[in-house]
Design a protein around this nucleic acid. Structure first.
Lengths: 351, 351
DNA sequence: TTGTATGCGTTATCAG
DNA sequence: CTGATAACGCATACAA
C-alpha cells in the first residue's frame, strides 16, 4: 500500500479509501490510485484486512464424507454462490468423526470466517459447539441434518416424506417382508427416514420386525454388512430400503454374493439418487435429493445472515422425489423381467 | 494474549515463547501460562500470526471438478496427510475454467498459504501463473496433469501405459475398429492417454481412422455426445475407449439409446475405475488410477517442500492398472454372454 | 476531500 | 531466561 501511495502521490489512507470505497475521493486521485494498483499488481493482504476488520471473506464448510458423491454436489452448490459473491470456501472433511469436527470448529474460528456451513457429523453435543462458533459473531447454517437442540438456520430435504414414498412403493408392489438399513441413528436425517418407513408400514397395517431394522453408517461397506445380516434371516425380507445409495450398492453386492437376483428375488430402494443410480445393474430405484440446491439455498441463506439479516431462524425443507427404475419387482405374480426396450425408455425419460 | 499474560503474571512475550517453544522458559512459568491458556480457552489468532510470520497453516488445493468422483478421492488423500500435520485445506473448484483458476491463484496468495496443490484446469499459460504463485515463496506441486513448461514438482499417474494396456486389451479381444474419446487435448493427461492408444494401435499395425478420435471434456455429457457421433459413423466402431469413466458412462447411455447392446455390439473401456464401475450394467472394464495415493504422495511431497527441502524437482509417476470386467466382448466368434455365475465370481475376485 | 495516527494479535529482536 | 518494543498490512476515527 505504501508503494502505491507513493506512486500515486497520495497518502496511504487515501489508497485504502479508494479500495474500499469508504470515502469520496476526487476522481483524479482515484484514477491515479487505480492505475498504480494495476501497474503494481497489488493484492490487498487478506490477513491484515481480516485482522483489522475482525472478519475475512472465508466461509468454512464442514462435511462428513467427501467421498460420498452426494456431498460434492452440495459443495458445488455452495461454492457457486459463494464464489459469485467473492467468498472463498475452506472445506473440512470430518470423516464422520465428531472430534475432528470440534477441532475444526475451534481452530478455524481464529481465521475469523464470515460464516459457517456445516453438515453435522453426529452428536447432540454439536448444538452447543455450534452455538459457541456462532457466538464468535459469524453466522452458522446447518445443512442436511439438524443437530438436536440447534435453534439456528437449517436447510433440509424432505427425509421423512421421501422414505415414506419409497416404502409405499414397495408396499404397492406387494412386498410385506420389508427390511430397512438406516443410517447412524444419532443423525436426524437417518431418524427421519426411518420414521417415514415406519409410518408407511403402520398405515398399511404391516407389522414391523425389529430385526428387519438394521443400523449402518451411510457407506457401502456397512451397508453390505447390514444386508448380509438381513439376507441370512428367516423369513428373508423380500425388499430392502437402504437409506442411502452407497448402502444400496452394498446391498446389491451382498445379494450378488448370495446369488440372489435383484429385483426378482430381492427388491431394493435407495436414497439420494446419485448420478450412477441410473447405471447400476439393475438401475436403482431411489429417492432423489436435490443436493446442488441444498448447497445453493444454504449458501444464500448464509449470505443474507452475513449481510446482517436478523430474520427469525429459518428451517427450509427441500422436496425429495422417488425415482422409479428397475430394482423393485412386483411380488404377486411371477415377476416379468422388464424388456430391454422398456428399460431403455424409462432410462431416457428419467434423464 | 494479554489476558493470559496477566493471569499467569508474565509478560506477553513469555506467553508467545511458551506457545511457540521459541525460548527456554522456567517450568514454573510455563505451567502457569499453559494453565491460563486452558482456563481461558485461548486460541491464537491465525490471522495475526500469519500476518506476522508471513505464512499460515493453510494449504490451497485447486481442482477442476469436485463433481467427478475421481477428484474427491484425491482430496481425501490430501486432507488426511494435511490434517495430520495440522495444515488446513482450502479447496477451490475451478469448473475447468482457467480464468477462475487464475483468479484463485492470485487472490488466495494474499492469505499467505504454506503451499499449493494444483490440478491444472488447462492451458500453457498455467505454468507462468504457477511460477508466480511459487515466486511468493510458497511451494507448488502439480497433481494429475503437468502443465507444459512447468518445471516444479509433479505427481502423475501412468496415463500412457494405462491407455496402452486398455487398448491392447481391446485388440487382443479381436477388435480392429477402435475409436477413442479423449479428454480436452490441452491437458497432458488427455494427451498421454491418446498417445498410449495410438502406440498400441501402431504396434498392432492397425490403422487409425482420424474420425475415430473424438475430443470431449471429461464429463458424462460430452462423452455422450462424442459417442453419439461415433456410433453414427460407417463402419461403426466395434469398441470405444473412453478416456475417463464419466465419459464411458456417456457412451453407455448413447449405446442404449441406439439399442446397441454392450458388450455384444459395442465394447467399452473406461479410465479411472471409479467406485461405481463395478456396478454399471455391464460392469465397466476400466483403468484403475490410485486417486487417494495421488493425493497423499503429493501432499507429502508438498510438506517436505514446506519444511524447506531443496531437493531437485520431483516427477513421481504412480502405476495404473487395467481392471477387466464385462464391458468388452471378444469379437471373433459369436460372443458368449457370460453366465450369471461367472459374472459373480469375477466381480468378487476383483474386489 | 485528504492525511495522520492508532491498533488489530502476533512474533521476533534485543537488551537486561 | 524474561520482558519491552517494533513491526506485519491494513482500516478507521479524527483532524485538517
Amino acid at each position: 500500500m505504501r508503494q502505491i501511495a507513493e506512486r500515486a502521490e497520495v497518502s496511504i489512507g487515501t489508497v485504502s479509501h479508494v479500495i474500499n470505497d469508504t470515502a469520496k475521493v476526487r476522481e483524479k486521485l482515484r484514477q491515479r490510485v487505480l492505475d498504480a494498483i494495476r501497474s503494481l499488481g497489488y493484492q490487498p493482504s487478506q490477513l491484515a484486512r481480516g485482522l483489522r476488520r475482525n472478519e475475512t471473506n472465508i466461509v468454512v464448510m464442514i462435511i462428513p464424507d467427501i467421498t460420498n458423491p452426494f456431498f460434492p454436489a452440495v459443495v458445488r452448490g455452495v461454492e457457486d454462490v459463494a464464489y459469485g459473491n467473492s467468498f472463498r470456501l475452506i472445506l473440512c472433511n470430518t470423516d464422520n468423526d465428531p472430534r475432528k469436527e470440534i477441532s475444526y470448529l475451534n481452530e478455524l474460528r481464529s481465521y475469523r470466517p464470515a460464516g459457517w456451513l456445516v453438515i453435522p457429523a453426529a452428536d447432540s453435543v454439536m448444538a452447543a459447539q455450534l452455538e459457541s462458533a456462532a457466538a464468535s459473531g459469524a453466522p452458522v447454517v446447518c445443512l442436511d441434518r439438524q443437530p438436536p437442540g440447534w435453534k439456528g438456520d437449517v436447510v433440509l430435504v424432505a427425509n421423512e416424506a421421501g422414505a415414506h414414498s419409497a416404502t409405499r412403493h414397495l408396499l404397492r408392489m406387494g412386498h410385506r417382508q420389508l427390511a430397512v438399513i438406516t443410517g447412524p441413528l444419532h443423525l436426524t436425517n437417518a431418524v427421519e427416514r426411518l420414521k417415514g418407513f415406519k409410518r408407511a408400514l403402520a398405515e398399511a397395517k404391516v407389522p414391523i420386525e425389529p430385526e428387519y431394522i438394521q443400523e449402518a453408517r451411510f457407506n457401502r461397506q456397512s451397508g453390505y454388512q447390514a444386508a448380509a445380516r438381513l439376507l441370512r434371516m428367516l423369513p428373508r425380507p423380500t425388499a430392502i430400503f437402504a437409506c442411502n445409495d452407497l448402502m444400496a450398492i452394498g446391498v446389491l453386492l451382498a445379494a450378488r454374493e448370495l446369488d440372489l437376483h435383484c429385483p426378482d428375488q430381492l427388491s431394493i430402494v435407495g436414497f439420494d439418487d446419485l448420478d450412477f443410480a441410473e447405471f447400476t445393474a439393475p438401475a436403482l430405484t431411489s429417492v432423489y435429493q436435490p443436493g446442488y440446491q441444498l448447497g445453493t439455498t444454504a449458501a444464500r441463506l448464509l449470505l443474507k445472515r452475513i449481510q446482517g439479516s436478523k430474520q427469525f431462524p429459518q428451517k427450509i425443507v427441500l422436496p425429495s422425489e422417488l425415482k422409479i427404475r428397475h430394482s423393485v419387482a412386483s411380488l404377486s405374480p411371477a415377476p416379468p423381467s422388464p424388456s430391454r426396450l422398456r428399460q431403455r425408455e424409462e432410462a431416457l425419460e428419467i434423464r
